[in-house]
Design a protein around this nucleic acid. Sequence first.
DNA 1: TTCCACTTTCTCATTCAATGAGAAGATTTT
DNA 2: AAAATCTTCTCATTGAATGAGAAAGTGGAA
Lengths: 256, 256
Amino acid sequence: MGDAEIRESGQSVTSRALSILAAFENTTGSLSVSRIAQRAHLPLSTTYRLIAELEEWGGLRRGSDGKYQIGFRIWELGQMAGRRLRDRAHPFLQDLFELAHENVHMAIREGVQSLYVDKIYGTKHMPKISRLGGRLPLHATAVGRLLLASQPDWFVDAYLERELEAPTPKTVTDPVELRAIIEEVRATNYSVTNEQMRLDAMSLAVPVVFNGGVVAAVGLVFDSHRSREVPRLLPMLRGTVERIENVMRGGTAGLH
Amino acid sequence: MGDAEIRESGQSVTSRALSILAAFENTTGSLSVSRIAQRAHLPLSTTYRLIAELEEWGGLRRGSDGKYQIGFRIWELGQMAGRRLRDRAHPFLQDLFELAHENVHMAIREGVQSLYVDKIYGTKHMPKISRLGGRLPLHATAVGRLLLASQPDWFVDAYLERELEAPTPKTVTDPVELRAIIEEVRATNYSVTNEQMRLDAMSLAVPVVFNGGVVAAVGLVFDSHRSREVPRLLPMLRGTVERIENVMRGGTAGLH
DNA sequence: TTCCACTTTCTCATTCAATGAGAAGATTTT
DNA sequence: AAAATCTTCTCATTGAATGAGAAAGTGGAA
């Protein structure tokens, strides 16, 4: 079991346990004990011991093949994260889906990425790019640009200085051009992107404002050749977000 | 800070950290450090130290009021739990919602409860009983009875021997009566309940079978006075589940 | 304003739980 | 059948976790 990794001393037990959980990030499917040990950079015996504890608690679940998966207790716990926003927005996102019959999604900013916290879709248009719980760069999607535009200039500048990925040949990565786009988003309070993540898709998004700040962005994705639908879809989006903002303020039970 | 709790010695660090996370279960909103300490049955200083680590990792998030909430990293991780079933079933559940225009939900069994792992609803009928990530007893809902009926007799017997809660006066809690109901569910392969969780609601559910076993149940909830809709809704449910079972078997990318 | 009750933050000497190499067995691959 | 890989488990050693308590912070009442 060649432990050629750099043994980071001074690690806390908790951080070891958490690194085991983190081993499941960006992974589809289940992992064996030794693969988890590799990914977590932990000795095998330590991994084994910690896994046993996590499994007993319900954080990990062992499949019939002996491999491990994230357990439903973690999923349940996760439902408590950002519930105020997610719970209140969801019914309106569903209404929007029925009205527009296009994929609806809502994202928040997490670091330099947008995190998709809700998503409405049927079998007709299965999402090809964003996934519930998935992350995408801020500069190449409508929701992302909105979330970026809501940040202070120093953040935008720092973001644009980095190496920006280009999922399609049409993806704008030029800092100057993007700066101008951000300014326009700020001025118009909505964002449209065309073929920035896929060559056949475009998206439209508007911000969700709460307590004077942008807390999320709600967007639609549809075929890139239907750009003339934007004037029809934008008011729907705006109306949806307005309703969300209302319930967020009003608020029934005292969440958060 | 009277630590009058029974100090359970022989506790592992991991279990302490996990008990801090568990403190957020069955809680709406955020918790202060001392409240977490109470709920986790841990000394304050220990709690403080562990919280700091969890926060740094992203498992907890501190609000502007100083209180803590579950962080989005846990939510993201949770998305990996049971993904195969949830991801594949979801689009069909959405289709079903559009077709039936009734609340759709999918639940799995976790111990002696059903856990609602997906839920489709708009503003029209907001769910009054089950919540995404919530749990309900097995004997008082259609999905629950189905999940119970799918278990071996020894499990059913053990379940019925316990004290069964009755959310409404009409809830059946008599073991003999429930046994008969379970048998009927087994025979007909679907389940209808009327006013078992609320006096104005009824529900209908069918099982999702995979690898020869019931892995989940899909159900609809609607007004209790619309019981004659059952013959119309049941085929829709059956069709939906059939499609789900097909993609589970077929399978595109090699999930799980 | 001051007082009081409660919460958060942090330190440090002590101790108890975590550690991981390695052995043995199980399982899969060649 | 041998080789390779993975899982399980033990135990002497060590170092990270512990929690009482001090100090500072917060907020409400009078």
